[in-house]
Design a protein around this nucleic acid. Sequence first.
DNA 1: CAGGATCCAACGGGATACTG
DNA 2: CAGTATCCCGTTGGATCCTG
Lengths: 124, 124
Amino acid sequence: MDTDDEFRISPPHRELLDQILDKWSLSVLNELCERPCRFNELRRAIPQVTQKSLTSTLRRLERNGVVEREVVSTRPVAVRYRITPLGKTLRPPIDVLLAWASQNMPAITRAREEFDTREEETGF
Amino acid sequence: MDTDDEFRISPPHRELLDQILDKWSLSVLNELCERPCRFNELRRAIPQVTQKSLTSTLRRLERNGVVEREVVSTRPVAVRYRITPLGKTLRPPIDVLLAWASQNMPAITRAREEFDTREEETGF
DNA sequence: CAGGATCCAACGGGATACTG
DNA sequence: CAGTATCCCGTTGGATCCTG
């Protein structure tokens, strides 16, 4: 009876999604899907991200095995980030999600406007 | 040439995903996909959520048009939350995502362990 | 029952300065 | 170049008390 009552989304799943779908991860993955990038290339590609956030995002993605970090020992050092095979498998789910977002953005915008005007009338 | 260089994920998409894939939204949507629920039913169904977080989550989902709020004027009042047609269209994308998570959880767990032990060796 | 209001601690994220 | 280290602040989230 309690078979799936405790089931839900499960904290591990939740945590995983948090780590991979967070603010900058999608942009980074998007970028790395097209080509390997160096640190500052990524910064330029995603202008709004700060160095700190980019660093922690990359670390997180690396830890979860979807991004790979390769240090080229030149002078000065170069670091090359690339997507892993595991990381590539993320494309389809993400694309499905983004497709959903694109398709339903108009409906959602309308819903928001309705909601907001309803709030104004009621709230005041 | 700069055709899709500025493209990326677009803030609206990003914001949308933030509002719908956040910590509690998935659990709530999951619950409401099965049946309409009252406020305290949801609290019981998702024990870890606080009243405050549940309230704001429901408001957000309502504003985005994926959840509907119906007030039944009894004594005391009852409030019934249900998923909207738009909300139902979220199922497939979410399921794809969760399927990915389930399938790759082992690989990810391994990646994390490897990363963490590598860190220990290097860090210290 | 279904929240609103408030207080507070923790965390993420930005800005800045510095390093191998 | 690719970060690390610090400071700082705004937002998030929990806990608690209160209400129509």
